[in-house]
Simulated scan of single mutants.
Amino acid sequence: MPEIRWGNGAAWLLAAFFLVGAYGNTFVTAEIAADYARWGYPQSFHYLTAIFEFTTAVMLIFRPLRLYGSLLGSAVMLAAAGTVILHGEYAHAMPPFMVLAVCLLVAILTVRSRRSRHRA
């Protein structure tokens, strides 16, 4: 049981992170808009990022969708890390990789939780 509670807590914290990210990408600052432009993304690309982050957050909240949310979040974080690495901003890759690790942890805990419920 503690593993299941840990998984729920991690999923909820991750959902909060992605909700904050969705808000930040919906209402971008001039600095963030300049980052997207420097990386070569279209002017409104931040809205697509916000949609993916919001969708991830919602999916993480609902247990039946949690595995898919953690996988979508993993994809978003891989894209973020890949973007900064491709542009030589290696130090900026660490936070996305850390969130990616939490996404993968939630995915693993979700799969384990499902397996233990099916066995019981």
Rank of each mutant, 00 (worst) to 15 (best):
F17Y: 15
C103M: 10
R114Y: 06
H92T: 12
E53A: 00
W39Q: 11
F52C: 11
D35H: 14
G82P: 03
L19Y: 07
G73H: 00
E89N: 12
V99R: 00
V58Y: 03
H87N: 11
F97V: 11
E3M: 14
R114N: 15
A37N: 09
I4V: 15
E53S: 04
Y90G: 11
T49W: 08
G9K: 02
L109A: 07
A50R: 06
T26D: 00
A79L: 15
G73R: 04
P64Q: 07
T55F: 07
H46G: 08
A91V: 15
G88W: 08
S113Q: 08
F17G: 12
L65G: 08
L71K: 02
L72V: 07
Y36V: 04
H92N: 14
V58T: 01
E3W: 12
P64H: 03
L65A: 12
G82Q: 02
Y41M: 03
Y47Q: 07
T55D: 01
V102F: 06
V102Y: 06
W12N: 08
R119G: 09
L65W: 06
I108F: 14
Y41F: 15
M1E: 06
P96D: 06
F97S: 10
L105A: 13
F52H: 05
R38D: 12
G7D: 03
A120L: 14
P2H: 09
F54L: 15
H92E: 14
M1P: 10
L72C: 08
I51V: 14
R119Q: 10
H87K: 01
A75R: 01
M98I: 15
L14T: 01
F45P: 04
Y36M: 09
N25K: 00
V111P: 05
E53Y: 04
F45I: 03
Y47H: 06
F97W: 13
Y68G: 04
E31R: 13
E3D: 15
R119I: 13
A93L: 00
L105V: 04
V106G: 01
A75T: 11
A37L: 02
W39I: 03
L78Q: 06
V58Q: 02
I51S: 11
M59G: 07
L48W: 12
H118T: 14
L13V: 13
L109C: 03
A15G: 06
A22G: 04
A50K: 04
N8G: 10
L67P: 02
G88D: 13
L109Y: 01
P95I: 06
Y90K: 10
G69M: 01
F62L: 11
F97C: 12
H46W: 10
L86C: 02
T55M: 12
L65V: 10
S74C: 11
A50P: 01
G7H: 07
V28I: 15
N8K: 08
P96E: 02
W39E: 11
G88F: 01
A33I: 09
L60G: 05
A10R: 09
R63I: 07
F45R: 07
L19V: 00
L65M: 09
W12F: 15
A37C: 10
Y41C: 09
G88S: 04
L67A: 00
A30D: 14
Y68M: 09
I32D: 11
W6F: 13
A22H: 01
G9I: 15
Y68P: 05
G21H: 02
A101S: 13
S113C: 07
R5Q: 09
P95Q: 06
I32Y: 12
I4C: 09
R66K: 03
Q43E: 15
T29H: 09
F17T: 14
R112C: 13
G24T: 13
N25L: 05
L109I: 00
